[in-house]
Each structure stands twice: as C-alpha cells, then as structure tokens.
Nucleic acid binder design. Sequence first.
RNA 1: GGAGAGGUGGCAGAGUCCGGUUGAAUGCACCUGACUUGAAAUCAGGCGAAGGGUCAAACCUUCCGGGGGUUCGAAUCCCUCCCUCUCCGCCA
Length: 461
Amino acid sequence: MVKSDAQCNVKCLLLPGRCVAGNTISERLIKIMIDQKYLRQDIAHTAERLKRRGFDLDAETYTALDEKRKALQIKTQDLQNERNVRSKSIGKAKAAGEDIQPLLAQVSDLGEQLDAAKAELNELLQTLNAFCLDIPNIPDDSVPVGKDENDNVEISRWGEPRQFDFDVKDHVDVAERINGVDFEQAAKLTGSRFVVMRGQVARMHRALAQFMLDTHTSQYGYTEMYVPYLVNADSMYGTGQFPKFKEDAFHTEPATEEGQGLSLIPTAEVPLTNLARGEIFSADELPIKMTAHTPCFRSEAGSYGRDTRGLIRQHQFEKVELVQLVKPEQSFEALEELTGHAESILQMLELPYRKMLLCSGDMGFGSAKTYDLEVWLPAQNTYREISSCSNMLDFQARRMQARFRNPETNKPELLHTLNGSGLAVGRTLVAILENNQQADGSVTVPTVLQPYMGGIKVLSA
RNA sequence: GGAGAGGUGGCAGAGUCCGGUUGAAUGCACCUGACUUGAAAUCAGGCGAAGGGUCAAACCUUCCGGGGGUUCGAAUCCCUCCCUCUCCGCCA
C-alpha cells in the first residue's frame, strides 16, 4: 500500500548531493539557538517535567546564560553592522578615487572590539551548547512518573508461557547440547561478552534476521537499507549518544592528530536516523519508514557482572531496526504502529511476551515515550527486554536539523523521529532456544522460520 | 597508494586569475497574478536557511564544503581538514 512511497523515499534519501558533509562547530552553534528557543517558552514547566525523569534543570543558570547571550549577540551584531557599513563606504570612496586614509583611521579600533565581542560570544555559546546537549527529552504526559524499571506499567500480555514437564535448561545449555555456541572460543578470539555460533544455531540466527527484514518490508512498508557500521561524531551527536554516553560505545583511533575517530554503531538507529540530518523533506515524502539489519556494538560500561552468562548482553549483537520519520502530529500514532510491527514478529514466532510502558525514570535519554517488549524466558522464569520502541518527538530532529516543509506555512519545521527494535536478533534466538526446547535436548523451529532454514523443523545435535 | 580536477541557492551553472554596494548573473523547477471555456504557451511579479528584532512589519547579523588566517572589507587571497570526480596502481 505504501510501496510507491517507500520507493520514493529511497530515491529521495539516496539522491546525490543531498548528503550534508559533517559539520562541526558552526552547525552546533545553530543547534543551541533552537534549544534555547525551546527552553525559553516555559522553562518552569519544562523543569518540572524533566524532574519526572530525575533530571534537575538548573533554570537559573540557564536563564542567566541566555540573557547574557542575548546582550552579547546584540552587541556583536551591532559592531558587525558598523564594520560592514564603514567598509562599504570605503569601497565607494575608493571607487570614486577619494582619499581613504581618514576612513581607515575611523575603523582602526573596531576590529579589536569586534574580535573581543565575538570571542566572548563564542565562548558563551559553547557553554550554552554544552548545557543544552546534556538535557534529556521531556517525558510525554502519558508517561507514568517513576524512578526505575520497577515503576514501569504493564500494558498487555500475549501468549501463555509453556508448562514444561522436564527440567528447563537455559539457552546456553540448550545451545551447547546441540553444539551451537562456543563462548570459550569467542573469549580466545576476542574476550568476554562475545560468542561464536555454529551450524544450525548460526543458521537460525541468520534466518531470524532475514525473516524480520522480509516481514517489515513486505508487510509494513519499510524500505530496507544498508548502512555504515562506523559513523562520525556528528551522527552520534545527532541521535543523542554524544556527548553524554560516549563511554557506552566503541571508538576508532583518530585518523590524524586533529581528525576525529569514528564510532561503532550501538544501534542502526544512529545511521538510519542520521540520514535525515540537515535535510528538508517535502511534506508528501513523509512518513519515511526504514529498516536495516546491522550488528550493534556496545561497551556495556556500567553493567559489569550483569548477565555475564550467555547471549543476553554481548559487546556485539545483531538487530533489525525500525526507524520512522514523520510529521509531528503523526508521531504518537506512529509509535503505536511501530510497536505493533515489532510485536507481530514475536507473535509469528509464537513467543509469549508482555508490553511495558516505561516510566519517566527508566526511559532513554532522547525518548519522550517508550514501550518495551519483554519476551518470556522460562529458564529465568521472567520476561526480558527484546525490543524498545520510542517516540523521540523532535529531540533528535533538533540536534540533526532534520526538517520538512510544512505546506500550511511553507516553512521548514522539525520532523519527529521514532525507532524500535524489530527485534534484537540474539535475544530472539535465546527466546526460541529456551521456549522451544524439548526433553531430548532438541529445539523445534518456529513454523514461519522453517522456509528460511531449508525446511528444517528441529535443531538437534 | 600516485597524478590531476573540483566542491556556489531545489537543480543546472556564472562569478574566483585582477578582494569592495554579490545572498550571489542566467536557465530550469516552483508559487501568485494576467490572458484562456480549461490547459499549454506567453507576459508581470515572487521564490534559500538560521538567529536577532517587531503586535506584525521594516530592519540587522550570519551562511558560497568544515575550520583557521590575511584585510577596513573575502564566494574571491593564504593555510589546513573533509568530501566528490577522472586517470594509473592495488584489491573483495
């Protein structure tokens, strides 16, 4: 139904010349201007809402900085104007063959004043920018106020956890019994939190990603994308990983002394969403729905000792990501849709899950509203996160300057971005291994996956 | 990796050697109006972004790949980084 749109989107995204070269400082100076406008509207209310997620906005500092900025900006612009006017008159005088010397004398000290004002303004802008980049997104009013995952609200459940008449093994035991994983080899090659998969398990891992991609493209109108796994700093700023969460990602060494290193993507959300960076879409190009299957790399700083066994928490894992770029008024509807797309994968794989609405304190930095899908893991006797679907509103769009032209005003306006896992492939594999295990150690292959595995119905040693 | 060419508005494409009223000729696209039964064609006008400012305007500042420098003044000169293209080499 959206096929033609999807095709158009690819074309638009891939049009040569639309890619904006990575800008650094000047681009960020613009960003903060907008952040300020945003904050200024109602700073007390903003602070109150940010508090719900445990963030203390220092409104006084902000207001003081902003007022200072305003004064400095006006001063600087006045000086620039004066310089421009005088320079022009010098040009005229010179063209008329008049003596320029007296005019030059008049401007002699202007340059210094201007330089000083500019430097001061610049410094302030950097401060303000840093201040604004650390502010998380504002939770939507529909988000329950809470501190941590214990305050998340269960929205729904799907499927019945299976009753086992034998001792349930965890996915590591299940996979090892059919010779499908080898963590020791991975540790030899690289270190902890990596895995080597082999044979039918490796194949099922691949099949899962293929199945997910095919479903999202053929059923839900997403355009399949192939994207870089290494991105520059601007991309990481754009989606909100930088500056606050730099430690969570892996980075390459800078290529040159001054050059910035690249970062391994922690999720395909980064490259997919940043496709919109610096772009102005026409209204009829939206919504843009993209999906990609990529590896994801996370340093897992701060999670030492958590989920050390098995595939749950790896430094490298695969994910099929869903990203949507939509008009502002459509984003909440789009979040429901996108979450539904991820849910449908679990349903087709017949994996019991529940849908959680994250509370204000448990949401990601850039999200205004997030649903987590948690799949049932019998060995852990609990539900574990397998997908996280978020409406970022214009949070990322603001950082990226991702806009569309509103036909009503004919002006560029920030669009809204959404993303969700559809699904995390490694954890889906875990869920199948655990939920579909048999007493004899074999694992049944979900029906929808069988065509992707040459008709194999059971994984066995 | 070696050699060369180039990065200008939605697109195409001048300007850059010899810096000055150039946010930027021209063409296309687009919008409005006139003409027309309607359309095409033609004619007239408009048509980048961000920030400041204003009730709204006027108006001001900034932006010709990024950063820095020279200058009263830089799209134009200098340095540097990034990217693109062509040829050679190498390679999946």
